[in-house]
Design a protein around this nucleic acid. Structure first.
Lengths: 207, 207
DNA sequence: TGTACATCAGTGAACGCGCGTTCACTGATGTAC
DNA sequence: TGTACATCAGTGAACGCGCGTTCACTGATGTAC
C-alpha cells in the first residue's frame, strides 16, 4: 500500500515486514500468516523479524494498527475532499470506509475480529479503532444542531449505522449476499440501497 | 446442546464428534479446533474421527451445517410461540437469532465467516444459510400487503436488516461496542435501540 | 440356542510437515581517536 | 583522512511441538447356519 523507504542496515525492515504481512493476509487469508512467510516475502531469513517484534502477536498487532491508520487516512482524505457540508463529509468518509473494507477484505477481517490476536493487544486496538467512531458522532451532533438529522442520542445512532455498515461489508466480503439478490440487482445497486436506508434512518434525504 | 443417543459400536460417535467440536470452538475459538482435541474430548483416539469424516474440513462443514440447523430450529420455535401476527413472528424469530448469535459467539463466527473452511463446502453452506432469509422476505411481503410495512423490494429490505443484525452481533461479540457507550446504557438498552431502528426503517411502530 | 465367521468402528504407533522461537555467529555500519 | 573497535541487524542451523493423516491391528458387534 505504501513503499518502504531505505533507513538502516537492510532498509526499513520493520515497515517492510508489516507490508509483507499485509500482502500475505490479502492473498492467503488470516490463517496463512506466518512469521516465516512474512520474512521470506520481505527477503530476509525467518529469524530476522525477531529483531523488530518480540513475537508473532506483536507483528500482527502492528499490522492491525497500521490498518486502522490507513483507514483513518482514507476517511480523512475523503472528508477533506467533500467540501464543507457536514453531511457530505459524513457520506464521503463512509464511502471511503466501504471502499477500504471491500478493497482489502482479508485485511479488514483481521482488523475487526480478534481472530489472530491473543488477548494481549486488545486495549491498544480498541483505542485506535475508536477515533473514526468519535468523528462520526461529532458529525451527527452537528447535523442535528443544523436540523438536518433527526434528534436522538448520536452515540446510539452511530452504533446502529456502524452495525449496518460492518454487517453489510462482512457479509458481502464473505460472499453471503450475492446469491440472495442474484441477477436482479448489481452489487452497486444493493450497496446504494443499504446506504440510502441508513440515511432514511437518520431522517435525511440522501445527498 | 443436545445429548448423544447410543447407536452403534461406541455410541453415536459422529454426533458426539460434532458436539465436541462445538464445545471446543466455544471454549478455545475457531483456531483451537483440531481433530486431535475433538477426538480426545469425545473420548476416542485421534484416528477415530476418520471413520466418520474424510478429513478435517468435512468435520467443520458438518459442525457448521448443524449450527444452521440449530439456528433454524430456534427461530422456528420462537416464531410458532409468537401467535399469528406476522410482524410479531418476525420480531420473535429475530430475537431468537440474536440470542443464538450472542449465546454462542465463537460458534456464530465459524458459521458466518468461511474462516476455517476451505472453499470446498461453500455451496452446501450457502443453501443452508439461505432458508431463514427467505422466511424473512415472505414475512415482509405479507406485512407489506397488510399495509404494516412500507413498500419496497422486500429482498433489499431484508438485506439491510440482515446487515444491521449481523454487524451488531459481530461487533458486540468481539467486544467492540461496549466501550463506545460505556456506563451510559446497558447492553440490553443498546440492543433494543438497534432493533427499534430496524423497525423504524420498515415504517413500523415496534410491537 | 450355540458356534463360526465377516464386518468394520476404534486403536496406537508412526510419518512428514510447517510452525514459533532460540542461539551462537558474521559482517556491515557508525563512531572514537 | 585513516585505522581500530563497538554495535547490532540479519543469518542459518537447530530445537521441540502439535498438527493432519495413514496403516496394520484388534476386538466388539451383527449375521448365517
Amino acid at each position: 500500500m505504501t513503499t518502504a523507504k531505505a533507513a538502516y542496515h537492510h532498509g526499513d525492515l520493520r515497515t517492510a515486514l508489516i507490508e509483507a504481512a499485509l500482502a500475505i493476509i490479502d492473498e492467503l487469508g488470516p490463517q496463512g500468516l506466518t512469521i516465516r512467510k512474512v520474512a521470506h516475502r520481505a527477503g530476509v531469513s525467518h529469524a530476522a523479524p525477531y529483531r523488530h517484534f518480540p513475537d508473532k502477536d506483536d507483528l500482527i498487532l502492528a499490522v492491525v494498527e497500521r490498518g486502522f491508520e490507513l483507514l483513518d487516512e482514507e476517511m480523512e482524505r475523503a472528508r477533506s475532499e467533500a467540501g464543507s457540508d457536514p453531511l457530505a463529509q459524513f457520506a464521503s468518509s463512509g464511502e471511503a470506509y466501504l471502499n477500504f473494507a471491500m478493497g482489502y477484505p482479508a485485511y479488514y477481517r483481521v482488523m475487526f475480529s480478534g481472530d489472530l490476536l491473543a488477548r494481549k493487544g486488545n486495549e491498544a486496538l480498541r483505542h485506535t479503532s475508536a477515533s473514526s467512531f468519535v468523528r462520526m458522532i461529532d458529525d451527527l451532533r452537528i447535523a442535528q444542531d443544523m436540523g438536518i438529522v433527526r434528534p436522538g442520542d448520536p452515540t446510539l445512532q452511530a452504533i446502529s449505522i456502524v452495525s449496518t455498515v460492518h454487517g453489510f461489508v462482512s457479509l458481502a466480503n464473505d460472499n453471503r449476499l450475492h446469491h440472495l439478490y442474484g441477477e436482479k440487482y448489481t452489487d452497486q445497486q444493493v450497496r446504494d440501497f443499504v446506504l440510502t436506508a441508513i440515511f432514511e434512518g437518520l431522517g435525511v434525504d440522501q445527498p
